[in-house]
Amino acid sequence: MEKLIKRGAEADILLGWWGPLRAVFKVRRAKPYMVTELDLKLRKARTIREASVMPQARKAGANTPYIFYVGIRTFTIVMQYIDGPTMKEMLDDKPVLAAELGRTLSKLHSVGIIHGDPNTANFILSDANRLWYTVDFGLSFFSSELEDIAVDIHIVKEMLAAQHKRVFQEAFNHFLTGYSKTAGQHGLTQILKKLNEIERRGRYGRQLVD
């Protein structure tokens, strides 16, 4: 009945119907390679987290699909289907779209939502109403710590460099411009300072040097 349209790293995305409505079934299936306790814990936590953050994100001004049903025991969320291209498919031709990503992310951050996976693949331009929708809140959490906000931005930067390498610099600049619209120049400066600190943190060489 439901058709598998995408197999992500942590969930299968199926397309089906919820009554008369087109719906996405996001099912977190067991991972055969993971120890059962850990697998169950993660799937449950992420299902609950995603389902609870999505409405909050909408309140903050980021469009998210409506949730129809949450199955804690089946690790399933049924939600509104947003039909349209992802930003991942469009950004290389139109780097200015990254500004939209920046605006959305700063709206989320302003109410203490850390997306946790701000990937261009998680932003969909709805064919129906031409609005950008944010999806995949499985790694999201609530925090207003500068550290967590800066890590979210770090993920964006890394992701743009790896997935959109030819337009990376331009796209990241647009992203920052978009971000500062809501966060303000001062807020952005603080975050970039923290970002710099995170990027310098001993990840490069070995840390055992005397």
């Binding site: 890394e158 460099a161 995170i198 943190r201 990840r203 060489g205 070995r206 840390q207």
Partner: peptide, 26 residues
Amino acid sequence: GHTMILVSGIRSWVVFGETLDLTLGQ
């Protein structure tokens, strides 16, 4: 000294993801 996921970039290797603190080896 590394825990990284990389993909090839333009005349370089690009970091797709990495550890934010300790490496797996450490």
